[in-house]
Amino acid sequence: MFRKSFYQYLMTERNDNSSEPIAKFANDAFFDQSFPKQSQNYQEISNYLELNGSYLPSMTIFDQAWESYLEKMQ
């Protein structure tokens, strides 16, 4: 079974007119050229964001997005 990468899922949450934290995260990640776009690995993406995700005000937003990703991929 094919599962989308986290980035592919996150792009479905993009919305330039939204002030929702996950939509803002998705908008910012879209412009992040180094984002691990093919990854389905929580630790890899989490480590990346901790080092490079200055646009993410809280890792809690990533955790919430990850939970939503897992639910949608089931």
Rank of each mutant, 00 (worst) to 15 (best):
Met1Arg: 11
Thr60Val: 15
Glu44Asp: 13
Ser18Pro: 03
Gln64Gly: 12
Phe62Tyr: 03
Ser46Met: 11
Ile22Ser: 05
Leu10Asp: 01
Ser54Tyr: 12
Tyr7Trp: 07
Gln64Pro: 12
Leu70His: 08
Leu10Tyr: 01
Phe35Tyr: 08
Ala26Val: 01
Ser39Ala: 06
Arg14Pro: 02
Met59Pro: 05
Tyr9Arg: 00
Leu56Phe: 02
Tyr9Glu: 03
Asn27Gln: 08
Ala23Cys: 08
Glu67Lys: 13
Ser58Gly: 10
Ala65His: 00
Glu71Thr: 15
Gln33Thr: 13
Phe2Thr: 10
Gln38Ser: 15
Glu71Lys: 15
Asn41Leu: 06
Pro36Ser: 06
Phe35Val: 05
Phe31Pro: 08
Met1Val: 11
Ala29Asn: 02
Arg14Asn: 04
Ser54Lys: 10
Ile22Gly: 03
Asn15Cys: 08
Glu44Ala: 04
Tyr42His: 07
Asp16Gln: 15
Glu44Cys: 04
Tyr48Gly: 01
Tyr48Met: 02
Gln64Trp: 11
Ala65Ser: 06
Gln64Ala: 14
Ser34Gly: 12
Ile61Ala: 01
Phe31Glu: 13
Gly53Cys: 04
Asn17Met: 13
Leu10Lys: 02
Tyr9Lys: 07
Phe31His: 13
Thr12Ala: 08
Ser46Pro: 09
Glu13Tyr: 06
Ser5Ala: 06
Arg14Phe: 07
Ser34Asp: 14
Leu56Trp: 01
Phe35Gly: 02
Ser46Asn: 15
Ser19Val: 14
Phe62Val: 01
Met11Phe: 08
Asp28Ser: 14
Gln38Ile: 09
Asn47His: 09
Met1Asn: 13
Lys4Ile: 07
Met73Leu: 09
Ile22Lys: 03
Glu44Ile: 01
Lys4Pro: 09
Ala26Ser: 03
Ser19Gln: 14
Tyr48Trp: 07
Tyr69Met: 00
Gln74Ser: 15
Asp32Val: 06
Ala65Asn: 00
Met73His: 05
Tyr42Ala: 02
Ser19Glu: 14
Ser68Cys: 10
Ser58Cys: 12
Gln33His: 11
Asn15Val: 05
Trp66Cys: 02
Gln8Pro: 06
Lys4Cys: 08
Thr60Trp: 11
Met73Ala: 08
Ser58Asp: 14
Phe2Pro: 11
Gln43Asp: 12
Lys37Pro: 04
Asn17His: 14
Gly53Gln: 00
Met11Pro: 04
Glu50Phe: 04
Pro36His: 01
Ser39Ile: 00
Asp63Ser: 08
Pro21Gly: 07
Leu51Thr: 15
Asn17Thr: 14
Asn41Glu: 09
Lys37Asn: 03
Ser34His: 12
Gln40His: 15
Pro57Trp: 03
Lys24Glu: 10
Met73Tyr: 04
Leu10Ser: 00
Ala23Tyr: 01
Gln8Gly: 10
Trp66Lys: 00
Ser39Leu: 00
Asn15Ser: 09
Met1Ile: 10
Met59Ile: 04
Asp16Arg: 15
Tyr7Ser: 02
Lys72Asp: 12
Asn41Cys: 10
Lys24Gly: 07
